[in-house]
Design a protein around this nucleic acid. Structure first.
Lengths: 204, 204
DNA sequence: CTATGCTTCAAACGATCGTTTGAGTTCCTG
DNA sequence: CAGGAACTCAAACGATCGTTTGAAGCATAG
């Protein structure tokens, strides 16, 4: 198997991630993908079975990594860690992944697209690979916000996830200014998000 | 012109809105649209010129209405209105529109898709029809948050817009429970968003 | 009534889509 | 070295895409 510096499978995954991010799942054709990956058109169906399966694999690869990092950051926390620290364990890995190489940024947009697609199959897949992590974090938040009811906590965690998704995908109007490095821009985004979210969570 | 209860043009717009919401711009074909609208396939190119122009029209129709309502709500505010009231003028029209009939919900998803598409042409269009409203609101927020620097204010307004977009599109994990009416669910969403956002904006 | 301009229609255009095929190549194993 | 699995390849499949065409329908104005 494999052989070349990067295997056919990996090259397809990376090209697909980038093209799905730019043109959407329906908008990016397998011919574009295989052409960018410099592999034969039939390779996708050979290695992944279908375009849909390829889409799933694009998700799985990055989501596994993101979840791994989030849980690791969460476990590194002391019991008496602040709400801000817990939020950082949730937010920082996401925004870091979002700016790692070309693929990271691409994946984040793909993720945002998945939300937008409202595709039930994809949502179920995301919920399965993602839901338990969100649950863990919600529990930690709950411990640091004893004044919140369950309902209240769910709503606010949801809002945090929304603001984060939005920030990850660079949807906002705020564009990084030329004199600010990408690393610095990300640091600012993390800082603002945590400050905003912790105040929002603590409200009342 | 027109004739039937609803003109060909309107029927196309409504069918397109619904189908773009469900399958995306690339994912919904003109044949699906014209079939759902019960009009001839060629009618789209006759009335709108192209599929892209049709997409633009889908946006213009709803965005004009949303902006109109937001500005009206903003102007109805007293000078000494609270931050929460200003936020409500921004948030409430959006979430109301998002739950008006079938078309409203569809449009919101279309809007979310537009964000995800990262299509420069569409983004420019949105910025032109939308930017000045956001600027107006930011100014009002600024008046009620004198402790914030310009940068800080921009960041936080951006986060609010993100959380709102997320909430409008029903991206969140929180699903309306069967024993809660849609109207009540929306009211809760508005309430939670305002409380969260006002605390986040006031942070520090 | 005829003529004119707007609208609708069925049909077809070339292009591109995801997928399949079957022969060819490569590489490890026995 | 022979055999076979793993993989790549060019070519083609039928389906569907956005768009165009030219004739037919239909109202209003002269």
């Amino acid at each position: 198997m494999s052989g070349t510096p990067f295997s056919t499978k990996q090259r397809i995954l990376e090209a697909a991630e980038s093209l799905f991010a730019r043109h959407g799942f329906a908008g990016a054709s397998l011919r574009q993908v295989t052409s960018a990956a410099k592999v034969n058109l039939a390779a996708v169906n050979y290695h992944f079975g279908s375009k849909d399966k390829l889409i799933e694999e694009v998700f799985r690869r990055r989501l596994d990594e993101l979840n791994r990092r989030r849980l690791k950051a969460l476990e590194a926390l002391q019991d008496d860690a602040s709400l801000e620290e817990a939020l950082s364990a949730f937010i920082t890995p996401a925004l870091e992944l979002a700016h790692e190489g070309e693929g990271g940024a691409a994946f984040v947009r793909v993720l945002a697209r998945a939300y937008a697609e409202h595709n039930d199959q994809l949502r179920a897949f995301l919920s399965n690979n993602y839901g338990h992590v969100l649950k863990r974090f919600t529990q930690v938040f709950a411990g640091k916000l004893p004044h919140l009811s369950r309902d209240e906590l769910y709503w606010r965690t949801d809002i945090v996830a929304g603001a984060l998704t939005y920030a990850m995908a660079d949807f906002g109007i705020i564009q990084r200014r030329p004199n600010v490095s990408e690393r610095e821009h990300r640091a600012q985004a993390i800082e603002h998000l945590i400050r905003f979210a912790s105040a929002g969570l603590r409200a009342d």
